[in-house]
Design a protein around this nucleic acid. Structure first.
Lengths: 151, 151, 151, 151
DNA sequence: TTTT
DNA sequence: TTTT
């Protein structure tokens, strides 16, 4: 069955993105974003923050947008899908779950005295999924390319 | 600002889709789906059903999928965006809000004795928004085409 | 069937919210937000903005958050459901589709010299839908209250 | 910042749910669902299925719904949030990413001769997040309970 | 009616 | 590792 696998996140980058440019011309960006949920503890009644970290992967046009415009602390909206990869390390199979983004909207960064672009927003994809460059990070061959990556 | 305009629905078709084939080769399907929410009434304690109807519009490949595979009573997952159109009738401006779908997944229809394909599901789009035919219902020219329609 | 009726929006308020405090103690906020999508026109190759306006309704705690913290131009994330109401005007039945929000996150307003709170964000609900005040805008009786409103 | 951490899945259970009843009265269900995406390979032109498995966790009322109504092969809609846990095994820290569901809708199972309830759907939560039992799987104390689990 |  |  064709299922649905959709993730929607709004959070802040923990570090600047790491972007690699592959031999075949494709780019891929990796970074983490934190989403924080605040709730009131049942017993103490105190407010507690719970932060969750998400590994984000962006391809092609979106990777280039990330390289040019995203930095540590920035707030972003990301829509994508879950993908779990397995890899070997010291004879042990490990698993990493990532969010492969297919839409990116910048929501502005943290306050700073020299930040004049705080509200400048950019959408790496767009809602109509047109044929613009960033939306092409969604092509099927993404999958075969992933096999080339030295994770 | 590049915003986000996203709708996610699971519901049942109220009637068979109406599909038109435009002169420029594009197809467009229109139908309504019902989403029902059940809640317990505060005063009576009784369960109450509240049904909401949504006007769905599908273009091109997705319209053709609708034409071939969808019929009254079928259950579908639809992802898309909100669009409000205005039109004149008897000198009064009226507004209609529709969901322009860019992903469709069939979830099976209602029970019937001769329905052997109840669980056969089909996704008119796909999560990676590839360049397959159905996903091309998302091209920008959708907008100019809409002006040609005799609503 | 219990369906799914979900809307996710990121956009800017066109005006300050209008908030009413009902006799039964509940509050309700109404405002519109714009979501803008930019695409490249097929023929001219020029970038075109298409703006969509959405009518937002917030109840109780979320209405009070809107009253205190939201103003014209602010950027917000809103999650909710579609609801279409009908009403009579001059003998004609008209329909309005609204988004009844059950989660609100402030994403910051536009740049201005005296705006020190630009990045201060607040979530009127929270992801775990806890029992905090704002989350109680989601109680079932919302439905009966709506009938009391002089729309 | 209060972020957004939302996952929406439609897929099929790989096995029957495992449900535990904790000493404090809470229940927790664990199972995996598969979402399959079909795309056309760039080089071969052949259709390729890519299946992703997701670890689902449901609490309280939703866990009890899962225990009563869900079984291997069933198709479900699940809405929830991502949570990554770490644990030690043989001196190595491992990570598991799960989807903690706060809404569940049954979409029907696979065909079987004795399955008359194939289309009977049930929503363990509801869209308005009311105070009904299932929705209380969302209370803040979920977090402290999780520490009690012998994962 | 917003925003870039 | 972020943010408020």
């Amino acid at each position: 069955m064709q299922g649905v696998n959709k993730v929607i996140l709004i959070g802040n980058l923990g570090k600047d993105p790491e972007v690699r440019h592959l031999d075949n011309g494709a780019s891929v960006a990796n970074f983490s974003i934190a989403t924080t949920e605040t709730y009131k503890d049942r017993n103490s009644g105190e407010r507690v923050d719970q932060t969750e970290w998400h590994n984000i992967v962006l391809w092609r046009g979106l990777a280039e947008v990330a390289e040019k415009y995203l930095k540590k602390g920035d707030s972003v909206y990301i829509e994508g899908k879950l993908r779990t990869r397995s890899w070997e390390k010291e004879g042990v199979t490990r698993y990493t779950t990532e969010v492969v983004g297919d839409q990116l909207t910048m929501l502005g960064g943290k306050k700073s005295s020299d930040d004049s672009g705080q509200s400048s927003n950019y959408s790496g994809g767009n809602q109509s999924n047109s044929q613009q460059a960033p939306a092409q990070s969604q092509t099927p061959d993404t999958n075969s390319e992933m096999d080339d990556l030295p994770f």
